[in-house]
């Protein structure tokens, strides 16, 4: 589904990603962990097509198409979703109206008819249950005055509404209490169906107790320095990132 080869990227001349290689197949869940500033959000932004990041080398393919040559909106329409680490606020635009516009833009791209008000509402009602989100929140302006937890839940709700094939969750667990974490994780799990894939960026192994990954990768200085299974996350939790740093330095010194 997604093939990242030797991806280099940066911003304003500063190098952040220094050769990322990663392949994600349908149905898989990949977790990316790594210390602050290692480039996790940058990777997510570059995949989603944020313009202020500059790709300086490598390639990315989504469904065998050159992702980097595709506009951000077409990436989204083709089935890529990013749950933002810091969702933005748009005053005056109701969350419902925003999502309806998004859903119908994506449908249009796939040659589907727009959903009418009734069908859209029905779909909303179903998905609202998944993430325990309230109607009253959805009538408010997009993310405006939402608590941290409400914003994150709204991201997962949008994911459920847009039904992406590849969802990138950027620290969706940060700032959530244990109940909210469980709700968000359940939302993600109930959306897993063997065909869609997830790239879950997180600091904490506790999320991975709920969303069980097939692979765990450690990002450090813009490179994936170690990959493994769920156990790698447990090891990290136990030993901290220093053990990775030491290992990396050891290999560099050899």
């Amino acid at each position: 589904m997604l093939k990242i080869k030797n991806l280099h990227a940066g911003i304003e001349g500063k190098k952040i990603l220094n050769g990322i290689n990663l392949e994600i197949k349908a149905g898989e869940v990949h977790a990316i962990m790594g210390p602050n500033g290692s480039g996790k959000s940058t990777l997510a932004s570059v995949l989603a097509g944020r313009e202020n990041f500059e790709v300086t080398g490598g390639s990315v393919e989504l469904f065998d198409k050159d992702l980097l040559a595709t506009s951000p909106e077409d990436r989204a329409r083709a089935g890529m979703f990013l749950a933002f680490q810091y969702p933005v606020e748009i005053p005056g635009v109701s969350t419902t109206n925003f999502i309806k516009t998004a859903v119908n833009e994506c449908r249009k791209y796939r040659g589907q008819e727009p959903l009418d008000a009734v069908a859209f509402l029905k779909m909303m009602k179903e998905k609202m249950k998944l993430v325990h989100i309230d109607q009253s929140l959805l009538s408010r302006s997009l993310n405006e005055g939402f608590s941290g937890g409400e914003k994150k839940r709204n991201e997962i709700f949008q994911m459920a509404m847009l039904e992406p094939k590849l969802a990138i969750l950027d620290e969706t667990d940060s700032g959530l209490d244990i109940d909210a974490l469980r709700i968000v994780a359940n939302g993600v799990n109930s959306y897993r169906n063997g065909e869609n894939a997830f790239l879950v960026v997180t600091h904490y192994q506790r999320l991975l107790d709920y969303i069980v990954p097939d692979f765990v990768h450690v990002l450090y200085n813009g490179r994936i320095v170690k990959s493994g299974t769920k156990d790698l996350a447990l090891e990290l939790e136990e030993k901290g990132y220093d053990f990775i740093k030491n290992e990396v330095e050891l290999t560099l010194n050899v």
């Binding site: 909106e73 990436r75 989204a76 748009i90 925003f98 999502i99 516009t101 949008q158 847009l162």
Partner: peptide
């Protein structure tokens, strides 16, 4: 960032 957020949801 607002525009990008919309783009990421499929809105040009």
């Amino acid at each position: 960032d607002q525009i990008f957020y919309c783009n990421q949801r499929g809105i040009d």
